[in-house]
Design a protein around this nucleic acid. Structure first.
Lengths: 135, 135
DNA sequence: AAATACTCTACTAACCCTATAGGGTAAATC
DNA sequence: GATTTACCCTATAGGGTTAGTAGAGTATTT
Protein backbone atom coordinates (compact mmCIF):
# COMPACT_ATOMS: atom_id res chain seq x y z
CA UNK A 1 0.00 0.00 0.00
CA UNK A 2 1.12 3.50 -0.83
CA UNK A 3 1.70 5.70 2.22
CA UNK A 4 -0.27 8.89 2.67
CA UNK A 5 2.99 10.74 2.52
CA UNK A 6 3.62 9.65 -1.07
CA UNK A 7 0.03 10.17 -2.07
CA UNK A 8 -0.03 13.68 -0.64
CA UNK A 9 3.31 14.41 -2.23
CA UNK A 10 2.16 13.43 -5.70
CA UNK A 11 -1.03 15.43 -5.31
CA UNK A 12 0.93 18.49 -4.24
CA UNK A 13 3.32 18.10 -7.16
CA UNK A 14 0.53 17.83 -9.70
CA UNK A 15 -1.06 20.89 -8.16
CA UNK A 16 2.16 22.80 -8.76
CA UNK A 17 2.47 21.38 -12.25
CA UNK A 18 -0.99 22.69 -13.12
CA UNK A 19 0.03 26.26 -12.30
CA UNK A 20 0.71 28.19 -15.45
CA UNK A 21 3.18 30.72 -14.14
CA UNK A 22 6.31 30.04 -12.14
CA UNK A 23 5.13 32.08 -9.14
CA UNK A 24 5.66 30.33 -5.80
CA UNK A 25 2.67 28.67 -4.19
CA UNK A 26 2.40 28.64 -0.42
CA UNK A 27 2.04 25.47 1.63
CA UNK A 28 -1.28 26.78 2.94
CA UNK A 29 -2.73 27.16 -0.55
CA UNK A 30 -1.80 23.62 -1.57
CA UNK A 31 -2.92 22.17 1.76
CA UNK A 32 -6.37 23.71 1.47
CA UNK A 33 -6.90 22.85 -2.17
CA UNK A 34 -5.82 19.26 -1.82
CA UNK A 35 -7.15 18.68 1.69
CA UNK A 36 -3.79 17.78 3.13
CA UNK A 37 -2.91 18.48 6.80
CA UNK A 38 -0.81 21.64 6.73
CA UNK A 39 2.04 20.52 8.94
CA UNK A 40 2.29 17.14 7.33
CA UNK A 41 2.51 18.71 3.90
CA UNK A 42 5.20 21.01 5.22
CA UNK A 43 7.47 18.06 5.97
CA UNK A 44 6.77 16.45 2.62
CA UNK A 45 7.56 19.53 0.56
CA UNK A 46 10.70 20.07 2.58
CA UNK A 47 11.89 16.60 1.68
CA UNK A 48 11.16 17.21 -1.98
CA UNK A 49 13.13 20.42 -1.77
CA UNK A 50 16.11 18.67 -0.23
CA UNK A 51 16.02 16.29 -3.15
CA UNK A 52 16.04 19.15 -5.64
CA UNK A 53 12.57 18.47 -6.94
CA UNK A 54 11.23 21.71 -5.51
CA UNK A 55 12.65 25.14 -4.85
CA UNK A 56 11.33 27.56 -2.27
CA UNK A 57 11.18 31.25 -1.51
CA UNK A 58 10.68 32.65 1.96
CA UNK A 59 8.89 35.79 2.99
CA UNK A 60 5.70 37.37 1.72
CA UNK A 61 4.62 36.00 -1.60
CA UNK A 62 6.94 33.06 -1.07
CA UNK A 63 6.22 29.38 -1.43
CA UNK A 64 7.29 26.34 -3.44
CA UNK A 65 7.84 25.83 -7.13
CA UNK A 66 9.02 23.03 -9.40
CA UNK A 67 12.71 22.99 -10.24
CA UNK A 68 12.15 21.31 -13.60
CA UNK A 69 9.49 21.17 -16.26
CA UNK A 70 6.73 18.68 -15.39
CA UNK A 71 7.64 16.51 -18.36
CA UNK A 72 11.13 16.09 -16.94
CA UNK A 73 10.03 14.79 -13.56
CA UNK A 74 9.66 11.02 -13.57
CA UNK A 75 7.29 9.33 -11.18
CA UNK A 76 9.96 6.73 -10.39
CA UNK A 77 12.10 9.50 -8.92
CA UNK A 78 9.26 10.78 -6.77
CA UNK A 79 8.41 7.28 -5.60
CA UNK A 80 11.97 6.57 -4.55
CA UNK A 81 12.23 9.81 -2.58
CA UNK A 82 8.92 9.60 -0.74
CA UNK A 83 8.09 5.91 -0.58
CA UNK A 84 11.47 4.26 -0.91
CA UNK A 85 12.35 1.23 -3.04
CA UNK A 86 10.06 0.32 -5.89
CA UNK A 87 10.85 -3.37 -5.45
CA UNK A 88 8.66 -5.40 -3.14
CA UNK A 89 11.65 -7.12 -1.53
CA UNK A 90 15.10 -5.83 -0.57
CA UNK A 91 16.73 -8.70 -2.47
CA UNK A 92 15.01 -7.50 -5.64
CA UNK A 93 15.82 -3.83 -5.33
CA UNK A 94 18.27 -2.23 -7.74
CA UNK A 95 18.95 0.87 -5.68
CA UNK A 96 18.48 -0.49 -2.17
CA UNK A 97 19.65 -4.10 -2.53
CA UNK A 98 19.97 -6.27 0.56
CA UNK A 99 20.40 -10.00 0.95
CA UNK A 100 17.67 -11.98 2.71
CA UNK A 101 18.51 -13.60 6.03
CA UNK A 102 16.59 -16.74 5.26
CA UNK A 103 17.58 -17.21 1.63
CA UNK A 104 20.25 -19.81 1.05
CA UNK A 105 20.38 -19.48 -2.71
CA UNK A 106 18.93 -16.33 -4.20
CA UNK A 107 18.97 -17.65 -7.75
CA UNK A 108 16.84 -20.57 -6.67
CA UNK A 109 14.38 -18.46 -4.70
CA UNK A 110 10.91 -18.60 -6.17
CA UNK A 111 9.71 -15.42 -4.51
CA UNK A 112 12.71 -13.52 -5.80
CA UNK A 113 12.00 -14.44 -9.40
CA UNK A 114 8.35 -13.53 -9.14
CA UNK A 115 9.03 -10.18 -7.58
CA UNK A 116 11.64 -9.30 -10.17
CA UNK A 117 8.91 -9.57 -12.76
CA UNK A 118 6.63 -7.30 -10.78
CA UNK A 119 9.40 -4.80 -10.19
CA UNK A 120 10.39 -4.64 -13.86
CA UNK A 121 6.83 -3.95 -14.86
CA UNK A 122 6.11 -1.36 -12.21
CA UNK A 123 9.40 0.34 -12.88
CA UNK A 124 8.64 0.60 -16.57
CA UNK A 125 5.43 2.45 -15.81
CA UNK A 126 6.91 4.79 -13.23
CA UNK A 127 9.92 5.62 -15.39
CA UNK A 128 7.71 6.35 -18.33
CA UNK A 129 5.11 8.47 -16.58
CA UNK A 130 6.03 12.06 -15.80
CA UNK A 131 4.31 14.74 -13.81
CA UNK A 132 2.94 16.16 -17.04
CA UNK A 133 1.15 12.93 -17.83
CA UNK A 134 -0.71 13.11 -14.55
CA UNK A 135 -2.33 16.48 -15.13
CA UNK B 1 7.20 -3.92 0.57
CA UNK B 2 6.09 -7.50 0.81
CA UNK B 3 5.56 -8.71 4.38
CA UNK B 4 7.52 -11.63 5.71
CA UNK B 5 4.25 -13.39 6.17
CA UNK B 6 3.57 -13.41 2.44
CA UNK B 7 7.14 -14.24 1.59
CA UNK B 8 7.20 -17.16 4.02
CA UNK B 9 3.81 -18.28 2.75
CA UNK B 10 4.94 -18.42 -0.85
CA UNK B 11 8.11 -20.24 0.08
CA UNK B 12 6.15 -22.81 2.03
CA UNK B 13 3.72 -23.31 -0.83
CA UNK B 14 6.48 -23.83 -3.36
CA UNK B 15 8.06 -26.32 -0.99
CA UNK B 16 4.83 -28.28 -0.96
CA UNK B 17 4.48 -27.97 -4.70
CA UNK B 18 7.90 -29.51 -5.17
CA UNK B 19 6.89 -32.67 -3.31
CA UNK B 20 6.15 -35.44 -5.72
CA UNK B 21 3.69 -37.45 -3.69
CA UNK B 22 0.59 -36.19 -1.96
CA UNK B 23 1.81 -37.21 1.48
CA UNK B 24 1.33 -34.55 4.16
CA UNK B 25 4.36 -32.50 5.14
CA UNK B 26 4.70 -31.36 8.73
CA UNK B 27 5.13 -27.74 9.76
CA UNK B 28 8.45 -28.60 11.34
CA UNK B 29 9.84 -30.02 8.11
CA UNK B 30 8.91 -26.95 6.10
CA UNK B 31 10.09 -24.58 8.82
CA UNK B 32 13.52 -26.15 8.96
CA UNK B 33 14.02 -26.45 5.23
CA UNK B 34 12.94 -22.89 4.49
CA UNK B 35 14.34 -21.28 7.65
CA UNK B 36 10.97 -19.98 8.80
CA UNK B 37 10.14 -19.55 12.53
CA UNK B 38 8.03 -22.55 13.44
CA UNK B 39 5.22 -20.78 15.26
CA UNK B 40 4.97 -18.04 12.68
CA UNK B 41 4.71 -20.57 9.89
CA UNK B 42 2.00 -22.35 11.85
CA UNK B 43 -0.21 -19.26 11.71
CA UNK B 44 0.44 -18.73 8.02
CA UNK B 45 -0.39 -22.29 7.00
CA UNK B 46 -3.51 -22.17 9.13
CA UNK B 47 -4.69 -19.11 7.24
CA UNK B 48 -4.04 -20.80 3.93
CA UNK B 49 -6.01 -23.79 5.10
CA UNK B 50 -8.96 -21.62 6.09
CA UNK B 51 -8.91 -20.24 2.59
CA UNK B 52 -8.97 -23.72 1.08
CA UNK B 53 -5.52 -23.50 -0.41
CA UNK B 54 -4.19 -26.17 1.91
CA UNK B 55 -5.62 -29.21 3.59
CA UNK B 56 -4.26 -30.79 6.75
CA UNK B 57 -4.10 -34.09 8.53
CA UNK B 58 -3.61 -34.44 12.24
CA UNK B 59 -1.83 -37.14 14.18
CA UNK B 60 1.35 -39.00 13.47
CA UNK B 61 2.46 -38.69 9.90
CA UNK B 62 0.16 -35.73 9.51
CA UNK B 63 0.87 -32.31 8.03
CA UNK B 64 -0.22 -30.02 5.24
CA UNK B 65 -0.83 -30.62 1.56
CA UNK B 66 -2.02 -28.61 -1.42
CA UNK B 67 -5.73 -28.81 -2.17
CA UNK B 68 -5.23 -28.22 -5.90
CA UNK B 69 -2.60 -28.89 -8.51
CA UNK B 70 0.20 -26.30 -8.47
CA UNK B 71 -0.75 -25.10 -11.93
CA UNK B 72 -4.23 -24.26 -10.67
CA UNK B 73 -3.07 -22.01 -7.84
CA UNK B 74 -2.69 -18.41 -8.98
CA UNK B 75 -0.28 -16.09 -7.23
CA UNK B 76 -2.92 -13.36 -7.23
CA UNK B 77 -5.05 -15.56 -4.97
CA UNK B 78 -2.18 -16.15 -2.58
CA UNK B 79 -1.30 -12.46 -2.52
CA UNK B 80 -4.84 -11.45 -1.68
CA UNK B 81 -5.07 -13.94 1.16
CA UNK B 82 -1.73 -13.22 2.82
CA UNK B 83 -0.86 -9.67 1.86
CA UNK B 84 -4.25 -8.17 1.10
CA UNK B 85 -5.19 -5.94 -1.84
CA UNK B 86 -2.93 -5.93 -4.86
CA UNK B 87 -3.73 -2.29 -5.55
CA UNK B 88 -1.50 0.34 -3.96
CA UNK B 89 -4.49 2.45 -2.89
CA UNK B 90 -7.92 1.48 -1.54
CA UNK B 91 -9.59 3.66 -4.18
CA UNK B 92 -7.91 1.58 -6.87
CA UNK B 93 -8.71 -1.82 -5.48
CA UNK B 94 -11.17 -4.07 -7.28
CA UNK B 95 -11.83 -6.42 -4.38
CA UNK B 96 -11.28 -4.09 -1.44
CA UNK B 97 -12.49 -0.75 -2.82
CA UNK B 98 -12.77 2.23 -0.49
CA UNK B 99 -13.23 5.90 -1.23
CA UNK B 100 -10.47 8.31 -0.20
CA UNK B 101 -11.26 10.84 2.53
CA UNK B 102 -9.40 13.61 0.81
CA UNK B 103 -10.44 12.96 -2.76
CA UNK B 104 -13.14 15.28 -4.06
CA UNK B 105 -13.31 13.87 -7.55
CA UNK B 106 -11.85 10.43 -8.06
CA UNK B 107 -11.99 10.62 -11.83
CA UNK B 108 -9.86 13.72 -11.72
CA UNK B 109 -7.34 12.31 -9.25
CA UNK B 110 -3.89 12.01 -10.76
CA UNK B 111 -2.64 9.48 -8.24
CA UNK B 112 -5.64 7.28 -8.86
CA UNK B 113 -5.00 7.09 -12.58
CA UNK B 114 -1.33 6.31 -12.11
CA UNK B 115 -1.98 3.58 -9.59
CA UNK B 116 -4.61 1.96 -11.80
CA UNK B 117 -1.91 1.44 -14.38
CA UNK B 118 0.39 -0.13 -11.83
CA UNK B 119 -2.36 -2.35 -10.50
CA UNK B 120 -3.40 -3.57 -13.94
CA UNK B 121 0.14 -4.53 -14.72
CA UNK B 122 0.91 -6.22 -11.43
CA UNK B 123 -2.38 -8.04 -11.52
CA UNK B 124 -1.67 -9.38 -15.00
CA UNK B 125 1.54 -10.94 -13.75
CA UNK B 126 0.10 -12.40 -10.57
CA UNK B 127 -2.96 -13.81 -12.35
CA UNK B 128 -0.79 -15.41 -14.95
CA UNK B 129 1.83 -16.92 -12.67
CA UNK B 130 0.90 -20.10 -10.84
CA UNK B 131 2.66 -22.08 -8.17
CA UNK B 132 3.95 -24.42 -10.84
CA UNK B 133 5.73 -21.58 -12.60
CA UNK B 134 7.66 -20.80 -9.43
CA UNK B 135 9.25 -24.18 -9.00
C1' DA C 1 9.73 47.10 11.30
C1' DA C 2 6.40 43.89 10.46
C1' DA C 3 4.31 40.45 8.26
C1' DT C 4 4.75 36.37 5.88
C1' DA C 5 6.11 31.83 5.10
C1' DC C 6 9.61 28.53 5.05
C1' DT C 7 12.85 25.52 8.39
C1' DC C 8 13.81 22.58 12.04
C1' DT C 9 13.35 19.74 16.31
C1' DA C 10 10.71 17.20 19.14
C1' DC C 11 6.92 14.65 20.46
C1' DT C 12 2.79 11.50 20.62
C1' DA C 13 -0.84 8.33 19.70
C1' DA C 14 -2.13 4.69 16.90
C1' DC C 15 -1.27 0.97 14.27
C1' DC C 16 0.94 -3.03 12.15
C1' DC C 17 4.53 -6.57 11.82
C1' DT C 18 7.00 -10.21 13.62
C1' DA C 19 7.57 -13.45 16.81
C1' DT C 20 6.72 -16.22 20.99
C1' DA C 21 4.20 -18.79 24.78
C1' DG C 22 1.27 -22.13 26.26
C1' DG C 23 -2.23 -24.80 26.27
C1' DG C 24 -6.16 -27.45 23.77
C1' DT C 25 -7.79 -30.84 20.44
C1' DA C 26 -7.95 -34.39 17.00
C1' DA C 27 -6.10 -38.49 14.98
C1' DA C 28 -2.91 -42.15 14.04
C1' DT C 29 0.07 -45.63 15.90
C1' DC C 30 1.41 -49.04 19.14
C1' DG D 1 -6.99 -47.33 25.06
C1' DA D 2 -2.80 -44.93 26.14
C1' DT D 3 0.58 -42.40 24.00
C1' DT D 4 2.49 -39.65 20.78
C1' DT D 5 2.33 -36.62 17.16
C1' DA D 6 1.02 -32.54 15.09
C1' DC D 7 -2.47 -29.40 14.10
C1' DC D 8 -5.44 -25.58 16.27
C1' DC D 9 -6.33 -21.42 18.84
C1' DT D 10 -5.81 -17.36 21.94
C1' DA D 11 -3.17 -14.08 23.95
C1' DT D 12 0.52 -11.09 24.27
C1' DA D 13 4.69 -8.28 23.79
C1' DG D 14 8.38 -5.57 21.68
C1' DG D 15 9.76 -2.91 17.92
C1' DG D 16 9.14 -0.14 14.22
C1' DT D 17 6.65 2.84 11.17
C1' DT D 18 3.07 6.12 10.03
C1' DA D 19 0.34 10.09 10.54
C1' DG D 20 -0.25 14.03 12.61
C1' DT D 21 0.68 18.03 16.13
C1' DA D 22 3.20 21.80 18.52
C1' DG D 23 6.14 25.41 18.87
C1' DA D 24 9.98 27.99 18.29
C1' DG D 25 13.40 29.78 14.93
C1' DT D 26 14.97 31.98 10.61
C1' DA D 27 15.02 34.26 6.28
C1' DT D 28 12.94 37.44 3.05
C1' DT D 29 9.92 40.65 1.07
C1' DT D 30 7.03 44.62 1.39
Amino acid sequence: MLSRKTKYGIKALTYLARQENQAPTSIATIAESEKIPHKFLEAILLELRKNSILGSRKGKGGGYHLMQLPEKIRMSTIHRILEGPIAMLPCVSLNFYEKCDDCVDEDACSVNKLMIQVRDNTLAILENQTLKDLI
